[in-house]
Design a protein around this nucleic acid. Sequence first.
DNA 1: ATGGCCATTTCAAATGGA
Length: 258
Amino acid sequence: MKIATWNVNSLKVRQQHVIDWLELSHTDVLCLQELKLPDEKFPHEELAQKGYRSWCAGQKTYNGVGILVRDGLKVDEASIVRNIPGFEDPQQRVIAATVEGVRVISAYFPNGQAPGSDKFAYKLRWLDALEAWLADEMRTHAELALLGDYNIAPEDRDVHDPKAWEGQNLVSPEERAAFARLAGMGLVDSFRQFEQPEKMYTWWDYRMLAFRRNAGLRIDHILLSPSLSARCTSCEVDKTPRKWDQPSDHAPVIAQLG
DNA sequence: ATGGCCATTTCAAATGGA
């Protein structure tokens, strides 16, 4: 089973990219972030025509997450959860589904704007709530995958220019500590399970010719519970759709589970 | 050179992203 995550930065604009990439990558389960559309505008029918069932937690203009599952894979309808239970939040950032017994979570972590800001405080509160909920989820699901736009570059090697970025949003010690706590819970960064090319990132600013200069950050991740990590045979970033016309500023990350 | 792009809302310029 191939599982993947992609921040599409508007599903309306990127719908054809998603359809093309599903066919290209043979992805079975695709987690999407930044749909930027309300539930009633989610293209369930169009995706169904391409062989995927879909679930979403959308909202107008901002945020919004979804999960696409190839026909034939077993999804327990009762397993669908939207948002972090107990964490009141109008922002739609989390959706979970159990697919073939694997707990799949699509998450769009808050950006945080800048350390010290109100949005940064919200990011840290959100991270605390996620961590508490994940602890429960991991107790009930041995095979769990947390996929999404984490808006955290966990290490300096995930940053094109660590000196310039030192202490900034997305790389600050507090954010990295939160990421490290996820690892402390037993979640494994599947990308780092395998040998990878140098300077591999998942996001590049639209400005400054950043993609051409490979001036990026690795902020999109697939974290796996111990028993799922043991099943994982590869994890890579696919930069292909970042080169297409009118691309998302993020590239998808895909992992193969044996 | 400390900006530059892009999507959205709504039709002009502000907001948010990362």
